Every structure is written in structure tokens, then in C-alpha cells.
Amino acid sequence: MNAEQFVGIDVSKATLDGAVEPQGQVWQVAYDAKGIDQLVLQLQEIGPTLIVIEATGGLETQIASALAGKGLPVAVVNPRQVRDFAKASGRLAKTDRVDAGVLAAFARAIRPQARPLKDADTRALDDLVDRRRQLIGIRVQEVLRLKGATTKPLQTSLKKHIAWLDKQIDQNDRDLTRRLRESDAWRAKDDLLKSIPGVGSVTIVTLLAKCPELGTLNRREIAALVGVAPMANDSGQYRGKRFIWGGRSEVRAVLYMATISAIRCNAVIRAFAERLKNAGKPPKVVIVACMRKLLTIMNAMLKNNTPWQPQNT
């Protein structure tokens, strides 16, 4: 069929609800191997221009991977964007079938970019990075509880749990390092990024797991993807302050810590920060600008497969 067709798929634990724009066709299949195969065949016959699925905490991975594996154009989008679109278009009701229709309309109107999905190795690395963050979060909570513990049994229990968490974090870090070093592609990227003063192993594994597009986009695209590109806030003669918004918060968090370190020990980033300070820029603006510069440097290094060269940055 020559006419453009846009598909929205609403994912739940048991079912997959689909809708096609502008035809208005809807369907539902079970979210199991048989249902996925049936849906893939159906969509191959349609030949959609774009398929949109909401990110649902990993529940969407199986169907998105199956569709992308067959060469179908899939975009996994932020649920907040879809909900805002639904409200703006007056679609306030919420059922699985309605949501599928909203996703199809979103695909037709917005046309989000279909990006390559993470492969199995990248998803496994992503899971390890998530688990490390969870373990550290639990450890912080237990340390705070230990500070307020007043009885011996509670202190003993908390200390045992903290010691166990330390072992789990160490094991997680070893697993992350092993995965990086076992892959030729990741090892090469790890070696390149490690040469940048201020960039440590946690920053590297988080970037590789959470931002696999690093090294494939231009400097504006990668800054917008991570969320370090200032957004304009102008109207008529009014010129408002620029703010960063959206992007990948987990990547931005580790990039912030790497930038704080780089401002101290990386001559290029330190000199850039000093120029901004001397120009009267506020501290937060300086840090965000340095985050963007550090990110674009890493992006260029991976894109061109070149090591750290401070004289060329």
C-alpha cells in the first residue's frame, strides 16, 4: 500500500493493543510468543511508515525488539510526551484501545525519530548499571539509618546489611568491567574515553549503556538527546532565561559529576570554565556549558575514533 500508515501499540502485561492511522483499524493480541509473531506478520503486510510504542519500564522491550528485528521502523517514546499530546488533542479518556489510538495519532502528527534499539549485550550492561544505582541507593538509606540507630541489635543488623551491600556493589563493578573488556567494540570505546582527564569508569559504563547513540550523532543532536542543550524562552521583545529540559537524566547525572572533576583536573575544561566565569556567567550556566563541551568532546572522539588530544579541542 502506497498511502502512509502510522501504528500505535499499547503494551500491557497480558495484551498488545494496536491502532492504525488514518484508517482507524484496531486489534488486540495476546502478549506472548504466538501473539508477537501474529502481530509482526500483520504489520509486515501493512508496511507502516512508523510504529510508536511507549516506554513502560522494560515491558515494551520484547515487542519493540521483535518488530525492529524484522526491519520495521519503531520509535519508543516518553509516556509524558504522549499524555501531553492526548490532553492537547482533547483525548481525555484512557483505555488500552484509546491509548493505542493516541499513539497512532502521535506517530502521524509528531513523527518521532525511529532509533536503533539496544542489542542484548547493551541491555545487559544497562541492567547492571541500573542495579548498581539501586544498590548504592539502598546503601545510602542504610547508612542514614545506622546514624540514627540507638540499640545494639539494630546497629549490628544494619552493619551486616551494609557489608553485604558493599560486596554486591563490588561484584557488580567487576561484572561491568568484565563486560566492557570482553567486547572489542566496548573495549575500544572504554580506552578512548578513559584517556580524558576527569572521566571515570562509572561515567563510561553509564554512557555506553544509557546512551548508545554516543559517537553516531552530531554535537547538537547528542546535546539535545542527553538534555544539556539550553531551550529558548522568548516571546516578542521578551528574552527569557535559557533552561535545559528533558533528555536522559541518568546520563546527565554522571556527566555532571565527571564535569565537576574535569573542571579541577582537565586543562581544557578548566580553561573553558574560567573564560565563562570571567565573562560573568553564573556558576550553574558554567557547569552546564562545561557538561555540554565534555559530552561533545566524547562524542567526537568516538565518532572519529581518535584519542584525547587537548590541543585540538
Results as ranks from 00 to 15, higher is better:
11 V>R: 02
14 A>H: 09
16 L>F: 05
24 G>W: 09
24 G>D: 10
26 V>N: 02
30 A>P: 06
30 A>R: 15
32 D>A: 08
45 E>A: 13
47 G>C: 11
48 P>N: 15
48 P>R: 15
51 I>N: 11
51 I>E: 09
51 I>S: 08
53 I>G: 06
60 E>T: 06
64 A>C: 07
65 S>F: 11
68 A>N: 09
71 G>T: 06
83 R>D: 02
84 D>W: 12
84 D>H: 14
86 A>I: 10
86 A>M: 06
87 K>C: 04
90 G>R: 06
90 G>V: 12
91 R>G: 11
94 K>A: 13
95 T>M: 08
95 T>V: 13
96 D>E: 14
101 G>L: 09
101 G>R: 14
103 L>N: 03
104 A>H: 04
106 F>K: 13
110 I>Q: 15
112 P>N: 03
113 Q>W: 12
120 A>M: 11
126 D>A: 08
129 V>E: 05
139 R>S: 14
141 Q>H: 14
145 R>P: 00
148 G>E: 15
153 P>F: 09
153 P>S: 07
157 S>G: 10
169 I>S: 01
172 N>I: 12
175 D>K: 10
180 L>M: 14
184 D>E: 08
185 A>P: 00
186 W>C: 01
187 R>D: 07
188 A>H: 15
192 L>E: 02
192 L>T: 03
194 K>S: 14
201 S>P: 05
203 T>I: 00
204 I>N: 08
204 I>G: 09
205 V>G: 02
208 L>A: 09
208 L>R: 10
210 K>Y: 13
213 E>T: 01
215 G>I: 11
216 T>H: 14
217 L>W: 04
222 I>N: 10
224 A>K: 15
225 L>P: 04
228 V>H: 04
230 P>G: 14
234 D>W: 05
234 D>R: 05
235 S>W: 15
237 Q>P: 00
245 W>K: 13
251 V>R: 00
253 A>R: 12
253 A>I: 06
255 L>W: 02
255 L>M: 00
261 S>P: 05
263 I>M: 02
263 I>W: 03
265 C>H: 13
266 N>C: 05
276 L>I: 02
282 P>A: 07
284 K>E: 15
291 M>Y: 08
292 R>S: 03
293 K>F: 12
296 T>D: 13
297 I>G: 15
298 M>R: 02
301 M>E: 08
302 L>N: 04
309 Q>Y: 00
309 Q>F: 01
311 Q>L: 04
313 T>Y: 06
